[in-house]
């Protein structure tokens, strides 16, 4: 697994004027990394993560996953890569409200369902395992509106893991959670990483700083090594 961001520059248009959010970002993420990016609200962290996940096209620069330039692919091919290789955890509450917990978790597997004989059994077994690891087994049949913030985050983490991605990209996975719940989730990421999962996440509470093998700060559209807040 190797994810490379090369000379990423991103401008938005607002009020008819362009303004730069990402100046010139270079970042290389290798197998087993656990990168924690911090930065003030509005500094461009989400923009960077969405570009890294192949969701958002940069104004210039390129994103390579395992040597493949993501933004040269058409929508179907890129979508397939997102589905199979990237476990994306969007900012905020992103469970689908009309599906219950177990359905939310297995959904990514059914976007491109396999014809293999034991497909459904395997997916279900993986889901059960994730529910157990995240300690939400008893919530299987519950709907998102019935869950607490922490429970919802766990569901979304399980969903990101169901297709056994090569990398987890998480946008403020602990925002709006109490200290204890946040810690529990960060511990989970740490364990995942210890098992070999590559993780790129963004956080803005300083409590999360102690997690991650490498901390970067987003400042004025550039990434700076270490905690510069």
């Amino acid at each position: 697994m190797k994810l490379i961001l090369k000379d990423i520059h991103k401008e938005y248009e607002r009020g008819g004027k362009n303004f730069t959010v990402l100046e010139k970002i270079n970042l290389e993420i290798s197998q087993g990394d656990f990168i924690n990016i911090i930065g003030r609200s509005g500094s461009g962290k989400s923009t960077l993560l969405n570009i890294a996940a192949g969701m958002l096209r940069p104004t210039s620069g390129l994103v390579e996953l395992n040597g493949e330039n993501l933004f040269l692919k058409n929508d179907s091919a890129l979508s397939l890569i997102r589905n199979k290789k990237i476990g994306f955890i969007p900012q905020g509450m992103s469970a689908l409200p009309n599906l219950n917990v177990i359905e939310n978790i297995i959904l990514p597997s059914y976007i491109y369902p396999s014809r293999e004989k034991n497909f459904a059994e395997e997916v279900a077994a993986r889901a059960k395992d994730l529910l157990m690891r995240l300690k939400i087994s008893e919530l299987e049949g519950a709907y998102p509106s019935e869950l607490s913030g922490g429970e919802l985050r766990r569901v979304i983490i399980a969903r990101a893991l169901i297709n056994r991605p090569e990398i987890i990209i998480a946008d403020e996975p602990t925002s709006d959670l109490d200290v204890k719940t946040s810690a529990g989730i960060m511990e989970f990421f740490t364990t995942l990483n210890a098992e070999g999962m590559t993780i790129l996440l963004v956080s803005h509470d300083l409590d999360s700083l102690k997690y991650g093998r490498r901390v970067l700060t987003m400042q004025e559209g550039n990434l700076i090594e270490g905690n510069k807040l």
Partner: peptide, 9 residues
């Protein structure tokens, strides 16, 4: 969210 999970257009 569906897009992020890999649903194509």
């Amino acid at each position: 969210v569906l897009r992020a999970l890999g649903a194509s257009r």
